[in-house]
Nucleic acid binder design. Structure first.
Lengths: 314, 314
DNA sequence: GGCCTTCCTGCTCATATGAGCATTCCGGGC
DNA sequence: GCCCGGAATGCTCATATGAGCAGGAAGGCC
C-alpha cells in the first residue's frame, strides 16, 4: 500500500466512522468506486488504524481470552478491559465483578465450592448478588483464623458467598501458618479440622486468588509472616502465594519447611481439581499470575487486560 | 434501558466488534432475536460505550471541524487528531502537515499568498511538497529581518513556500518591531517597503500562526521584545500575538503604542481578508487561539483536537 | 518488443444490516 | 375484570456491504 492509498484510507475512515457516510457516498466524495473504498477501509482496519474500544466497567476482551485458552491451555479465561480504568482499585473491582459474574453463570452449579480468603475473595463476595445460586455450600480451603483487627474477614467472605448462594459455609478453624510443625500436625489431626479439609478436598470447584510476595500481603497484615520472612522468601525466588503457599516462577514451593506448617489444601490437590478458578488482578501480581498459569494451578483464570497481556507476551 | 440490557449490549458489542460475529450469530449465542441485537448495539453506540478512534498522524476529527464551522462561524476548520500523540513536537508536526495539505488542496489556487513567519510557518514550509502548486507568489505580511542567529528563518520560510509552489517570494525588508515610531514610519514610507506592503494587502490568501504571550515567543528569541516587555503585555491582558501584534482575549490590541511601531498588515486588514488561514497548535496557545477565532481574525483554522475542544467547550 | 506473472480494478451476487410498521405485552386507571 | 396508552418486539423490505471472480494494467524477464 503506497502513501497515497494510506492517506485515502484515513480520509475514508474519517467519513465512514465519524461522519456515518456510506461507502458509496465516500466514493463520490473522494472520486473512487465504492469497492475501492471498501478495500481501503479493510486495509485501514487490517493495518490497525481503526481502533474500536468498548468502554464499560463490565467490558471484556474476548480475543485475549481466546488467546489465553489456546496458548496457555486454560479451560476458560475471563479478561476485563482496562479501557478507561482510573485506579488499581477500580481494576480490582472490575475483576472481582467479573469473577462474581462467572460464578453466577457457572453451569452446572457446583454443590460445594472451596474458597480461599483475602482482599480479592472478599471483594468477590461483595459483588455477588443475593440468589446468585441456590444451595451452594462453601468450604474454606486454607487456614484463616485471623490474628488481629482483620479478624473475621476470612470467615465473613465464606459466609457471605454461601448465604447469597443459599447454602451453608464451613469454616476451617485453624491459623493459616503455624509456628511449629508439630502444632500444625496436631491441628490437622483434630477431628473437626480433618473433616473440613476432607470436605474441601471433595469440592466441585475452587475459587481462589494469589498474593504478591511483598510487604503488602495479607499474611503480613494478618501477622502470619513478618516483612523479614517475606524478604527471605523473595530471596529464595518467591513471586507470590496461593492459598498461603509461596511459589517461585515455576510454581514450585519455595520453602518446604514453611509449606509444611501451612494448613489447608496442597497445591497439588489444587492442580488435580477439575475446576479451579484463579482471580488475579493488578500489576503487582503479574509475576505470580504467570507462575499460577504456567504451573497449572488453575483451569480458569479471571484477570485484567494488562495481566493477561503480560502472560501472553511477557 | 435497564441494567440487564446494558450488560447484554456490552456482551453483544464484544461479540460484534471484537469477534466479528454477525448480529444473527450473536442473537443465537445470547438467546435474542437479531433485531434485538441490532437495537442493543445501537444503544451501546448511542450511549458512548463504543469508542472508535482513527489512530494515524494524518487523521482528522471531522465532527469537531463541523462544530467549529457551525458554532464558531469559521468558513473552514481542520482539526488533527491527538490520538496516540507522544509529544508537543509531534502535535505541531501533525498540525503543520495538515496545514500543508490544506494549502495543497486549496482551490482556486491563490496567485499571491501572504505569509507571516515563525516556528509554525517554518514547519509548514518544510512539510510542503515540491510542486504543491504551480506559480504561487509569496509575500511576507509582517516585518521579519531577524536580529540574531535565527536570521534568515523568516526569509527561508517564505522562499521555501514560494519555490516549492513554483513562484517567487517577496520579502518585507524590515524589522518586525521598531524602537521608535518615527523609524517605523520612515521605513514604511520607503518605496520598496511600501510596495511590499501594498502587494501584501492585495494577496488572495493569508497564512499565519499565532504566538503565545510567554518568554518562549519568537519575538523574544529574535530580540524584538525582552522578557520584561512580554510580562508587561501579559499584565495588560495579552494572550498572544498575531503577525507581531499582541491582543487580549477579545482580540483587541493590548498596547497601541507598541502596535504602532510594528511593521506589516494590521489586524483589521487581516480581518477583512476573504481567506485568512490561521494555524495554531499546542496547549500553550489555547488562549490566543480562542482570541483569534472569537475576534474573526481568521476564516480558516488549522489546529489540534485539544485546542479545538477548548474553543468549543472552554 | 513480446510474453508472462502478478496485482489491481470493477463487477455480480449473496449476505448483513437498518428503517419503518404492525403486533404484542405490560402496567395503570376505572 | 376490562380497557387503554406506551413501550418493546418481531416482522417486511430496501439498502449497504463483503466475497469471489473475470478482465486488464503494470512490471519484470527473455
Amino acid at each position: 500500500m503506497d502513501e497515497i492509498d494510506e492517506l485515502l484510507s484515513i480520509r475514508a475512515a474519517e467519513l465512514y466512522y465519524e461522519e456515518n457516510k456510506t461507502q458509496d457516498e465516500i466514493g463520490q466524495a473522494l472520486n473512487l468506486t465504492r469497492w475501492k473504498v471498501g478495500r481501503l477501509l479493510a486495509q485501514a482496519k487490517h493495518r490497525g488504524f481503526i481502533r474500536i474500544e468498548i468502554v464499560h466497567p463490565r467490558a471484556r476482551r474476548l480475543p485475549i481470552e481466546r488467546r489465553l485458552r489456546d496458548e496457555r491451555g486454560l479451560d476458560d479465561a475471563i479478561v476485563v478491559s482496562s479501557a478507561g480504568v482510573a485506579s488499581i482499585e477500580e481494576l480490582q473491582a472490575r475483576t472481582a465483578q467479573a469473577a462474581a459474574d462467572y460464578l453466577t453463570a457457572l453451569r452446572p452449579v457446583p454443590r460445594t465450592l472451596g474458597v480461599s480468603w483475602g482482599r480479592t475473595l472478599f471483594e468477590i463476595s461483595q459483588h455477588l448478588r443475593n440468589g446468585w445460586a441456590t444451595g451452594v455450600n462453601v468450604v474454606q480451603i486454607n487456614g484463616g483464623v485471623s490474628l488481629n483487627r482483620r479478624a473475621g474477614t476470612a470467615a465473613a467472605t465464606a459466609v457471605s458467598i454461601a448465604q447469597k448462594g443459599g447454602g451453608q459455609a464451613t469454616l476451617l478453624p485453624s491459623p493459616a501458618i503455624l509456628e511449629r510443625l508439630e502444632t500444625k500436625e496436631a491441628i490437622e489431626s483434630d477431628r473437626v479440622v480433618a473433616g473440613v479439609i476432607e470436605l474441601a478436598r471433595s469440592a466441585d470447584a475452587y475459587l481462589f486468588s494469589a498474593g504478591a510476595a511483598d510487604h503488602n500481603s495479607v499474611h503480613v497484615e494478618s501477622g502470619y509472616l513478618s516483612p523479614t520472612d517475606v524478604d527471605l522468601l523473595v530471596a529464595k525466588g518467591a513471586v507470590g502465594d496461593v492459598v498461603g503457599r509461596y511459589i517461585d516462577s515455576d510454581g514450585n514451593i519455595v520453602d518446604p519447611a514453611l509449606d509444611a506448617r501451612t494448613v489447608g489444601l496442597t497445591l497439588d490437590e489444587l492442580r488435580a481439581a477439575r475446576l479451579a478458578i484463579a482471580v488475579v488482578a493488578g500489576p503487582a501480581k503479574h509475576a505470580v499470575a504467570d507462575a499460577v498459569v504456567r504451573s497449572g494451578l488453575c483451569s480458569v483464570l479471571v484477570t485484567d487486560e494488562a495481566t493477561a497481556l503480560h502472560l501472553l507476551d511477557g
